[in-house]
Design a protein around this nucleic acid. Structure first.
Lengths: 221, 221
DNA sequence: TCAAAAGTGTTCGATCTACACCCATGG
DNA sequence: CCATGGGTGTAGATCGAACACTTTTGA
């Protein structure tokens, strides 16, 4: 007998760091260990919908960027039973996140991507795979915005990229690159109550991206 | 009840074209249609080993480049039953391929990637995903060699890249790039019986690549 | 000597890097 | 007026695209 589960690597961005949402396991096996949110798969829903449901239950968020990583199917990845898990990663704006009833604060934790605790099963490997995929994707698709509030400064955006890619980027070149894409909309707003020149705030519009793409534009950072 | 299967997209390279190995379905459902080779998953073997077995049974090849694409889990992708398939793609040297007994020639076909016949289930979508992944991977990892004989010319290699990426590459720049990587070994051999200046033949050595990688080298075409 | 494909030299422009500088705000 | 981070100008280096050219073989 083979069981299928779906696990979600939920990425957030806070204090200039890339974070992953983990929950403390409430049941055996490996009760008490931190783990990825997920569920056994119901035969009546698609794997993608199952991942969406997990996300909705945990964060009350919908219409979230969600991409499958892959299936993890080592024989002994789960004790006693044969469980093949299909993992997804999601990018959310951490400010919009509001844990649903049943998920108490003690059970949930946003962990730094580079200082993860001990994790249940092969979940650390799954997170590493998710991060690797995110590194590639973020350079070729305009998805970094999903981790930010609707209005953000170019410095905010640069910090997101630096946190994901784990490298420093050159300010001048980053801004030149972003600006010449003509992808962002100047909201007219500025930062407030900052002890320096307030940054302009921008927003990303999916429609503009789609239009640019039709004209052969290829996002690339 | 959910069933799991494993399918393989086996890529080969012939007549300067990228090919996929397909078999004619022998059983219902969708008997007679062309499909990807694959099998239902046995609960006692890992998904990766299952893909390796499929490859071995069909081609008698081992130690082949094999990467998982992802799981395909729409509810209605397979008639009557709920079958989630986990798909892999492989790169083989088409000259080494020798179909095993039980797989008669009428049942097997190397199809051009850009003129596929009608396929069973969602197998066309799987092949598209495999090709997309290959396009990305081939630019960042030295895997193109797997499609070529042990000794090959730089033009051979360029044709492989052009077939995979479906674009033309500039000869001068391609060669400069490959040469400055210092990744290939000059075998000392040359083409024979060609009505033009014979090309030098090279081979790829995994060990050299590993050593370069340790020193921070990053393959990139 | 010709055709064909291998293989090389070199120019031009785009892009990346690095540094210097000005700007707007709160304290 | 100063500290701070936002935002820009620009010179020089590096890299990729494009083109023209030479080389070596079989016929």
């Amino acid at each position: 007998m083979i069981y299928n589960s779906v696990d979600c690597v939920i990425f957030g961005f806070k204090n200039e760091k890339l974070k992953v949402l983990l929950i403390k396991r409430n049941n055996e096996p490996q009760k008490g260990l931190m783990a990825l949110p997920g569920d056994f798969l119901d035969s009546s829903i698609s794997i993608y919908d199952s991942a969406k449901n997990t996300l909705k239950e945990l964060t009350n968020l919908e219409n979230i960027y969600l991409e499958q990583i892959r299936a993890f199917g080592e024989i002994d990845r789960y004790p006693d039973k044969r469980v093949i898990t299909i993992s997804y990663y999601a990018l959310i704006n951490i400010e919009h996140y509001s844990p649903q009833p049943g998920y108490t604060v003690e059970k949930l934790e946003w962990c730094d991507i580079d200082s993860l605790p001990n994790l249940a099963f092969d979940h650390k490997e799954i997170i590493k795979s998710a991060h690797k995929r995110l590194k590639i994707r973020v350079g070729n698709e305009p998805i970094g915005f999903n981790l930010l509030p609707e209005c953000f400064s170019l410095t905010n955006l640069q910090k997101v990229y630096e946190a994901i890619l784990q490298i420093e980027l050159n300010k001048r070149n980053f801004r030149t690159k972003i600006n010449q894409m003509k992808l962002l909309i100047d909201t007219g707003k500025k930062q407030e109550n900052v002890a320096h020149k307030p940054a302009k705030l921008y927003r990303f519009d999916e429609k503009i991206y789609q239009k640019l793409k039709e004209n052969g534009f290829y996002f690339n950072i």
